[in-house]
Amino acid sequence: MLEVKNLTKSFESPSGKVTALENVNISIKTGEFASIIGKSGSGKSTLLSMLGALDTPTSGSIKVDEVDISKLSASKQTVYRAKKIGFVFQQYNLIPNLSALENVMLALEFGGMASGKRKKRAVQLLEEVGITPDEMLRRPTRLSGGQQQRVSIARALANHPSIILADEPTGNLDSKTGKMIFDMLHSLSRKENTTILAVTHDMDIAGKTDRTFTLKDGKIAV
């Protein structure tokens, strides 16, 4: 269960105070596939960074399984990111000099899995997202965009997270591959009972999710 209450984030900029998010209230049930849509600058990415404990809100609360992550210490937020959150980025953001397998193993290492078990689990995850054994040993630059995003999904799933936060997961992919990635995320949310929150501007994709929130000027539009 993800519950966001009165979430506000404001920055000090040279031109004065900028409110990126204002009194945002969202509630997503476990296993739900939700999407956030909005124009550029509407606060989508800011909301995502708050939910992923990459940044702290100015006020309000974010409760994940009854724990307010905005009140956690920096080190506990790191643990939260490692174990409770899976990120999928538009740019894939795989570590360039590590192979696909090593990228997934890295997330398992941060999740605290014993080193002897990591490889088996990583191989299993990569197989689930359709990466062949040959592709597993390749570095990201030698994989296609779709393959990289699948590795990225495998990495996000590594530590059985409560929530997967996806920032424009299909933004860099052609429509066919994008649809395939979307279907993969959709089936995962069903199979693993994982909450997925995807930021997108693709109305087709948003339309297929369980719930859609629209952000406008930092506020949830009804």
Partner: peptide, 16 residues
Amino acid sequence: RKEIGVIKAIGGTNKK
């Protein structure tokens, strides 16, 4: 910078 951000985002501690 971005790579360090990625490592931290997926749960890498400052120490690591």
